[in-house]
Simulated scan of single mutants.
Amino acid sequence: MTARIMQNPWRLLLAINVAVIVGVFVHKIQLPPYVPYIHLLVDYHFGFVKRALIGAVVALFTDKVPVWLVFALGGVTWLVTLALYARLFQKTFGFTARTLPLFVFIAGSPFFLKNFMHTLGHFDIYGCALAIILLLVPAGSLLFVALAALFSIILVLVHHIHLLMYVPTIIAIVVIRHYLTHGCDRTNVAFGIIALLVVSALFFAAQFVGTMPIPEADFVAYLKTRMADPSRTELLQFAYIWYQPLAQEISDTWGRLPHNILGVPVFALLIWLHTPLWRYFSNLIAALAKDTHRRLVVAALAGVSLAYLVMFAMVFDYSRWISNWAVCMFLILHAVKMLPAARETPPIPSEDQKTNIFGLIITLIPRVGIVRPF
Rank of each mutant, 00 (worst) to 15 (best):
G94L: 03
I16M: 15
P110C: 09
L270W: 02
A313I: 01
A52L: 02
H27K: 13
H259V: 03
G369L: 00
A139L: 02
G108F: 00
G192P: 06
F48C: 10
L360G: 11
I365Q: 06
M165N: 12
L88F: 03
M329A: 10
A129V: 03
L135C: 12
I250Q: 14
A195Y: 00
N283I: 00
K354W: 13
L84R: 14
A139E: 12
V137G: 14
S251V: 02
Q7L: 15
L12A: 15
T77D: 11
P36C: 08
I365H: 09
Q353L: 04
I161Y: 12
V368F: 00
T2F: 15
R279S: 04
L135K: 04
N17T: 02
I106R: 13
Q248N: 13
V35I: 13
F191A: 01
V24D: 03
G23N: 07
I125Y: 03
G183W: 01
I261K: 12
L157T: 05
R343K: 14
P168L: 01
A299N: 10
A190N: 06
S319R: 07
P36L: 01
G210M: 01
T345D: 07
F204T: 05
A341C: 05
L130M: 14
L296V: 03
F116I: 01
I241A: 12
S350M: 11
I285Y: 07
A52Q: 04
T275D: 08
I54N: 10
V35D: 15
T169Q: 05
H293D: 10
R294W: 12
I322T: 04
A195P: 02
L69M: 14
T225R: 13
S323L: 04
G94S: 07
V18A: 15
A97T: 13
L246P: 11
K114R: 14
D252W: 08
T233N: 05
L136V: 09
A146I: 02
